[in-house]
């Protein structure tokens, strides 16, 4: 650890991930959180983005209360050494006290490199952030597959690096009229050791991590054919079907559709679980869901401890009724969610 002169570091820098000129939604979420913290600290919020085709980045961040926006024109595809050097250069110049990075594939690759470059602390996958009386960032994160929450501080070195998964923080909604100062630079950095040969898009919009609503099937589903009923429910709601690991092990659902510690972390607006007991491993992947509706026939099922709307009953009795009603509503003016 490199002990820093804490007083030299101030403000909050948000790494705004972007690709093909588009800002990743986690960027606005982090700026929203940064702004809340900055008010407490009486500090400013800055943002930095790297990639190609950055002309529209600032317009995608309108309303965000940014002091300065740094844009570095470089290869669009992330490579470790080039991106580390660019962002480290920006940090060096700005000396922010806090650096927030999205807990995406890219962010989680970048963050530890930066933390080591500055020999400072990094807290991964924070679910909530606070400021203590000395102005340190209190970083709260789950560990042991969600069995435990830990509050972590980086007291003696700066910057304080933290990653936050997408969907965890509220996006900035306050409409700020402030126009950030835009600092643009072309970067001519290449890395001979790491050459991207091919980038193949997987179907986007299809993944369970990108849905507003998920219907989740668990071992309470008796036959593979019965999944069709749940799939129909998910489609009527404009969402997708996902599952616990139990059904992936049976081969009824694919690992890409699995929620949980060894599957995907999801944070949709609405989730309806059907016959899922709520094991720790399952819950580790869905705790951030805004509205959890749980259907389970066992009144003591653990899923009821985190469900916002716990429903005790037989999924085979409830789901067909739901489908019928949704179909009727669709006939009227129900526009989905």
């Amino acid at each position: 650890m490199r002990k820093s002169n804490i007083g030299e570091w101030s403000g909050i820098l948000v790494y705004v991930e972007c690709r093909k000129g588009k800002v990743h939604p986690v960027g606005r979420e982090l700026i929203g959180e940064a702004w809340r913290l900055a008010e407490e600290l009486g500090a400013a919020v800055y943002a930095v983005a790297a990639g190609s085709g950055l002309d529209d980045i600032s317009s995608q961040l309108t309303g965000c209360p940014l002091e300065k926006l740094y844009l570095y024109e470089t290869d669009d595809e992330y490579t470790p050494i080039v991106y580390e050097n660019i962002i480290a250069g920006c940090i060096e110049k700005l000396k922010p006290s806090i650096v927030l990075i999205g807990g995406t594939y890219e962010g989680r690759a970048l963050a530890p490199r930066l933390a080591v470059a500055f020999e400072s602390g990094l807290t991964a996958d924070c679910t909530s952030l606070e400021i203590d009386t000395e102005g340190n960032l209190i970083q709260i994160r789950p560990a042991f597959g969600g069995n435990v929450m830990a509050s972590i501080v980086t007291a003696h070195s700066r910057p304080q690096f933290a990653t936050v998964r997408p969907g965890v923080m509220e996006p900035v909604f306050e409409e700020s009229l402030r126009e950030p100062v835009i600092v643009r630079e072309m970067v001519n950095l290449t890395d001979e050791r790491f050459k991207v040969l091919e980038v193949k898009e997987t179907e986007s919009g299809d993944s369970i991590t990108e849905q507003n609503i998920l219907v989740v099937a668990g071992r309470g589903v008796r036959k593979k054919e019965d999944l069709e009923m749940l799939r129909e429910l998910s489609e009527l709601l404009g969402g997708k079907l996902a599952s616990s690991r139990a059904l992936v092990e049976k081969g009824w659902m694919s690992p890409r559709e699995q929620i949980g510690l060894s599957g995907n972390a999801v944070s949709p607006q609405y989730m309806i679980t059907c016959g899922v007991s709520g094991t720790v491993q399952f819950m580790a992947g869905m705790k951030q869901t805004k509205n959890i509706i749980a259907i389970n026939e066992d009144p003591s099922a653990r899923i009821f401890e985190i469900a916002h709307y716990p429903v005790c009953g037989d999924l085979y009795g409830i789901v067909p009724e739901l489908i019928e009603r949704l179909k009727m509503q669709k006939g009227d003016d129900f526009t989905g969610i």
Binding site: V153, S157, F304
Partner: peptide
């Protein structure tokens, strides 16, 4: 180490609510 675990605590739980039991149509 640059970080310190200041506190470890159980995950906050939404208070266990009594699940509603309404039968198929009522639950729907």
């Amino acid at each position: 180490s640059a970080t310190r675990v200041r506190k470890i605590f159980p995950p906050p739980r939404t208070k266990q609510q009594e699940p509603v039991t309404l039968g198929g149509a009522g639950a729907a």
